[in-house]
Nucleic acid binder design. Structure first.
Lengths: 146, 146
DNA sequence: GCTGAAACGCTAATATC
DNA sequence: GATATTAGCGTTTCAGC
């Protein structure tokens, strides 16, 4: 990717609400030129969207956990992600190398909700689970250095 | 938290660049009232900031991994997060219950960079590591249902 | 692909209730 | 806390290069 686009992406990672005017000033381009570039980045799928970064505890999602998942029947076709996509507590689903097949990142209000969620995951996807509870999060969602 | 604030937060999770005018229309409040509420949410730390959601492969970060970390000396004071905060490849650091002490989420261009990063993590923090490589990511960064 | 300009819409501050 | 108002600023589009 081109250097100017990279610069723009980095600025939007740091502040997703930065104005095109300010992006222009920061990159030495005109407002229209930045605007065009951002739209191309969005069209090409480099920029997929924008979001607020929210304190999970403040929105009643105080319990975060990682759930490693393994199908009961390893020979069956594996459609685990689609089977789980409807559970909104699952923030992310990664297919991984290693002992298990997937790692899920989930957020729930508390332990009882985690218990419920685990049951729903097992029945919806036909998997066994291994859960790692997050105690605290020193940092998260840091913008990468490009 | 109040219902209106929750609604606003949800809308900003779905579109971090939504205008105050549109937030007002969506919530039935005036532009100024929404604006005030958003600023209070930011001040209170409920909304911590805004960011673009970017395709990691498009910005030369094609390899994602989870690294579980355990101090060599479990009796020493544990300042692992501070020791690692300077490594920009680390997107998140979670303290967890279980066999290991922390789970790190990292992104690098490729396997060689992961090897380098692991060495830097071990020497910087005095820890042993266990790495789980992400093969693909069916979904990630989904906004939670509030 | 970039610039510059004009129309339009949004933001942010003030005043009022 | 909410609304109304308004000046200033940002966004978006388009013509021109």
């Amino acid at each position: 990717m081109e250097e100017l686009d990279q610069r723009i992406v980095q600025l939007l990672l740091q502040d997703g609400r930065m104005s095109y005017t300010d992006l222009g000033k920061a990159t030495g381009l005109s407002t229209s030129a930045v605007h065009q570039r951002v739209r191309r980045l969005e069209q090409r799928g480099v920029v997929r969207g924008y979001t607020a970064i929210v304190d999970p505890e403040a929105v009643n999602l105080a319990l975060t956990a990682f759930i490693s998942v393994k199908p009961f029947d390893p020979s069956a076709p594996d459609d685990t992600p689609e089977r789980l996509v409807g559970l909104p507590e699952i923030e992310a689903c990664h297919s991984v190398a290693g002992d298990e097949n997937y790692i899920l990142k989930v957020r729930v209000p508390g332990p009882g909700d985690l218990e419920d969620l685990l049951a729903r995951i097992r029945t919806a996807a036909g998997v066994s689970t291994r859960t790692t509870v997050v105690l605290s999060t020193p940092y998260e969602a840091r913008p990468p250095k490009l």
